[in-house]
Each structure stands twice: as structure tokens, then as C-alpha cells.
Amino acid sequence: MSTETLAQLSDNLVYGAMAAFAVAMVALAAEAASRRVPTGAPADRSLVATGATDPESVSGPGPAGRRDGSGPTAPDAQVPPEAAGRADRYGRVGTSVLVLGTILLGLGVLTRGLAAGRVPWSNMYGFAISGTFVVALVYLVAARRQPDLRALGVWVVATLLLTLGLAVTVLYVPVGPLVPSLQSYWLVIHVAAATIAAAVFTIAMVASALQIVAERAEHSGRRTGYAGALPPAERLDALAYRVTAFGFPLWTFAVVAGAIWAEASWGRYWGWDPKEVWSLVTWLVYAAYLHARTTAGWRGRRASVVGLVAYASLIFNFFGVNILFEGLHSYGGL
């Protein structure tokens, strides 16, 4: 197949993936809506609900994924069984379509790479579609291993759709050759590490955001509605931490690999290029998050806010730096 055909095929696959993600998002939203705890709960139920604020029961099902229940760990006593069954069905549909979308997106990334004859990471469009693919993959693998994570599903897919939407409208550039400054095997190493780290941090971001929602609901004693179906705040907190702890060494590696490449390409390993500045800011804020969480004993909302700030800096490093600043990384195609 010619370059143009492959590039066209890649674009179509990405659009197909977006369609699948849109369907998956609707299905997962329907799942979340069905799992929601009805508000007009009878008196004995509200007693159960009050009991749920007792720390023993909030601490949830104990070690990760030991429960073999099919759905996220909603306080099942409060969801009517027929709604739970419906939710499981929606959930299965959503996850299946998400898997389909992920496969389409993966093929889209692959064909784009084939069209260019190399890894498709030389501009922001390629980075965005690869990044969303990795997010979807990381989410699917993680959710399989830890069913709790499925509560994040709808928001993860929403983030994916948003990123892909931006990718095809704002960031899109046609397949082109690699400019001399990118002709290096470090492109593969550096960008792959950065993409995977960003994907992992995205999952952590969704967990942190939901942690805040769940904690607010728990504090106000409200255990109904959407928040009522979320995993306990403490569980989300632990999840965000664990995922971030996994992403942090990856991000560190991405920065170090970038420095090694910069030495080969620009003659210095650190030169305060805006991208370098912001990757350091991101690193520092994630380091602060990990310290706050492990050593300073910050739990819950405060730690989550730091995690969200760190993620904001990560996203700014990706979009903002390329759009706003003139720098050595500005071959993004904008």
C-alpha cells in the first residue's frame, strides 16, 4: 500500500476508534447511572447508609481485587438487584466496545507508523493518538486485574475522546518525513517512556478527581446517587497513589532519556528549554505528591489536589508549551 493509502487508512481507523469510544462512553455512563443509589431510600436503608460512614466499613473490601464480584464495589445492599443486573450488562457492553475502539486505535497508530516508515511520534498528533491508545490499554489491563478500577471507566473514556477530538481537529498534520533533529533511536525510547508515563498519570488523575467527589459525599454523609456507587474515597486514594508511584519512575526515565538525547542532539543535557522546564516542574510536583502521601501523611482530598496539580502541569507541558512557547521542542506541527 502506498503512503497516502496507509495514511488515509490510519485517519479512518482513528475516526472509527472515536466512534467506538463514544458508544463505550454512553454505555459506561449508563452503567454508572444504573449503579447510582436511589435517593428515596427507605428508612432502614438510610440506617445502612449511616453505618457506612463507620471507618471499618469504609475501608472497603480489603486487599485489592480479592473480591470476585463482577461489578465495581458499590455498597450492593443499596442498589436494587434488577438495576445492578442492568448495570452489569451496560458495563459489559461498554467494556467490549472500548476494547474494540482500542484495537481500532492501535491499528490506526500502527498504520500511521507504516505510512511514515517509522514510529509516528514526531508531532503532537502522533503523540496524542499513541498516548490515548496507551491510556486505553493501561486502563483495560488494570481494570481486568482490579475490578474496582472500572468505576473510573466512563471518565477515562471521556478523557480519551476529548484528546482524540483535539488530535483530529487541532493537532492534525499529514504524515511527513522525520526532520534531522528527530532522526535518532532516542525518539523511540524517550517518547515511548513519556507516552506511557503520561497514560499512567491520566488514570491516576481520574482516580484523584473521583476521590475528591467520593470524599465530599462521605463527609456530607450522603451515600446515594452517583457518589454512592463510587468505591470508598480511601480506596480511590490508595489507587491514585499506587498508579502514580508506578508512573513516577517512568516519567523520571523519560526525562533522563530526554537529557541523554539532548546531549547528542543539541550539545547539552539540560538547557532550560521550556519543555525541559515543564517536565521538571511536573517531576517536582509528582515528587511532592508522593512525599505528601507517604511521609507527611497527607491523605484524601489534600493529596488528590496535589495529584491534580501535577497532572495539570503534565498536560500543560504537552499542549501549552508547544502552543505558547518558542522552544527546541516546537516541531510539534502547530
Binding site: W272, P274, V277, W278, L280, V281, L284, V285, A287, A288, H291, A292, A296, S313, V321, F325
Partner: peptide, 15 residues
């Protein structure tokens, strides 16, 4: 922790 945040903040103007 304060110093970490401060350093992150102080790094920004350079960009």
C-alpha cells in the same frame, strides 16, 4: 514539601 512546591513554582518563570 514546602521547598519542593516552591522550587516547582520558581522554575516556571524561566519558561
Amino acid at each position: 514539601l514546602l521547598l519542593l512546591f516552591l522550587l516547582a513554582l520558581a522554575t516556571v518563570p524561566g519558561s
